[in-house]
């Protein structure tokens, strides 16, 4: 016998956005259900007690994956994270996304976790967010008031808050196309080596235009109340960064982060860890891009 440990709610699988909108407009406590990896835990712990769960995984277009070399990548909100590991278009054109997803949680979790649910989760240690931030992802949403586009860089408001309205649904995410000579790296330090208990995480990306390394992206995890990029540090690296630029970029990062003490790692230690990871990632990106034959 298994003990039933979820408090009662109504599970509803809407057929269309309009139908979902009607529920969202009602008086009841409605939560959208993606893969449930976060939501079911919140319900079990009493943090959430919804009356209605709207399963958005079957809405039209939510499972779509489309890539076009001029238009970039469109990922439906219900696409699961395992697709980022196995999808050929992802491996080929967005390798940082592939690399990050491969490290994220377990096959069991990735097979269920959705793009929409994971982005909406808004945790400061969301690894998907780090990669998506590097690729300039834009969230496309729908609410009874219409469609919206929210760049991911503006999506996270901190403390698990997002720019989503109460009745707003992520429909898909869009990533612009990236030139071939783009390279990205994600490094993390966690207490357990499968990723549990994050001390620090850093994703770095850039591409090479002739001899210059440009379009630098630095996203850090666990360093603030949200996943975030550090544009000031990115700017320092434009061109042909040497030791001094790297040192300066690292310095700026340290100035602009505010890690918290957690029970398994102090803030000063998390800073040091991030610094080491970031230095390594930047160096590797430079090394890799410079080694490509022109």
């Amino acid at each position: 016998m298994e003990t039933r440990d979820l408090k009662p709610f109504h599970y509803i699988r809407p057929e269309s956005l309009q139908e979902a909108g009607r529920y969202l407009a009602s008086e009841e406590a409605v939560k959208l259900l993606g893969g449930g990896n976060t939501l079911l835990l919140q319900i079990r712990s009493g943090q959430e007690s919804p009356d209605i769960l709207l399963d958005v995984k079957h809405l039209p277009g939510f499972g779509d994956v489309r890539y076009h070399h001029n238009q970039g990548l469109k990922l439906g909100a219900a696409v699961n994270l395992q697709h980022l590991v196995v999808g050929l278009e992802i491996r080929r054109h967005y390798p940082l996304l592939h690399q990050t997803a491969q490290k994220l949680a377990s096959p069991q979790v990735r097979n269920r976790a959705t793009i929409g649910g994971t982005l909406a989760w808004a945790s400061p240690i969301s690894e998907l967010a780090a990669a998506m931030l590097c690729y300039d992802a834009v969230c496309h949403t729908w609410s009874p008031r219409g469609h919206r586009e929210i760049p991911l860089a503006e999506f996270y408001l901190g403390d698990y808050q997002t720019a989503l309205a109460r009745d707003e649904i992520i429909t898909h995410v869009h990533l612009p196309p990236f030139p071939n000579r783009t390279y990205g790296i994600y490094h993390r330090q966690t207490v357990r080596h499968d990723g549990r208990r994050m001390i620090a995480g850093a994703a770095v990306l850039a591409y090479r235009k002739q001899q210059a390394l440009t379009h630098w992206r630095i996203a850090v995890l666990g360093m603030d109340n949200r996943p975030k990029r550090i544009p000031d540090a990115e700017a320092v690296l434009e061109g042909t960064p040497g030791e001094a630029e790297i040192a300066r970029a690292l310095e700026i990062v340290q100035e602009q982060i505010h890690p918290a003490d957690v029970d398994y790692a102090r803030a000063d230690y998390r800073r040091a860890s991030l610094n080491a990871l970031l230095k390594q990632a930047i160096t590797e990106v430079i090394h890799h891009l410079q080694s490509i034959r022109s």
């Binding site: 259900l33 769960l53 395992q82």
Partner: peptide, 16 residues
Amino acid sequence: IMNGEVVNACMVLAPE
């Protein structure tokens, strides 16, 4: 295994 993929059965709702 659900539709060919491994999942945690404690994290899947029965109606799904």
